[in-house]
């Protein structure tokens, strides 16, 4: 992949020449469509479409304003669909199997959740179930739902709600941390037991890759790519 090129957006106007009231000259939502405000420092820019591999940084605080969406809606949908399949495999197959003098023990993600619940760590069981199952699954299903309709250029039923949910759920999905945690657990267990990695660990590894790719996508782009369905 090509390295990122840094792009800049044009500031909306010179602060000193035209203080305040610039908004008065912009009527309605249409004319604010091409403005973008830095989420970290509140600087206002005029948006322009970015070329492949470009990332626009805020000149004031350095945060990322916008990045080129290198995957089209169809490709994004394919990616989400793949993620759903891998997610199912990751959750039904054993992650690792331990052997100790002829006995065997295996676990899945839900096995870990249930073990924590039964051993008096219900809060941890709840956190694990949310951050490793419900939030990632919700993210995949909701993103899939809006993308399915976005392929036809329309907004899915419940679009505003779905888009808000995607933004709110994103920081709480922790598949990649779980992946690293599995590796640490395997190394720790390896000292005392025979460890056989199961299909689940590969699925989680692959899911980590997919999650990394789709966390580079900004679903908010869909607001601009879709229009309200004609009633």
């Amino acid at each position: 992949m090509r390295p990122f090129r840094h792009a800049t957006f044009t500031p909306i106007c010179d602060h000193r020449e035209r203080p305040v009231a610039a908004f008065d000259r912009l009527d309605g939502m249409q004319r604010t469509q091409n403005l973008i405000v830095c989420e970290h420092c509140d600087s206002v820019y005029r948006r322009r479409s970015l070329a492949r591999g470009e990332v626009a940084d805020c000149v004031v605080c350095g945060a990322v304003l916008d990045r080129h969406q290198w995957l089209g809606v169809d490709a994004q949908f394919a990616l989400i669909f793949a993620a759903l399949i891998v997610f199912v495999i990751a959750n039904v197959s054993p992650i690792v199997t331990l052997g100790l003098s002829g006995m065997k023990a295996a676990t899945t993600l839900w096995g870990a959740v249930i073990a924590m619940w039964n051993d008096g760590a219900q809060i941890v069981a709840f956190l694990s179930a949310m951050t490793l199952f419900f939030f990632p699954l919700g993210q995949i299903l909701i993103f899939g739902w809006v993308l399915w309709f976005a392929r036809k250029g329309i907004r899915a039923p419940g679009f505003p709600l779905a888009m808000s949910a995607l933004v709110r759920v994103k920081p709480w999905s922790m598949i990649e941390v779980f992946m690293l945690g599995t590796l640490v657990a395997v190394v720790k267990a390896h000292t005392y037991f025979d460890v056989v990695p199961g299909a689940g660990i590969w699925a989680f590894g692959f899911l980590t890759l997919l999650v990394t790719v789709f966390s580079s996508l900004d679903p908010r782009e869909l607001w601009d790519l879709t229009a309200e369905a004609e009633a």
Partner: peptide
């Protein structure tokens, strides 16, 4: 959250 998940997996496995 790394250590929390490590404990969860080990508790389920061992």
């Amino acid at each position: 959250m790394l250590d929390v998940f490590v404990v969860a997996i080990l508790s389920a496995l061992v």
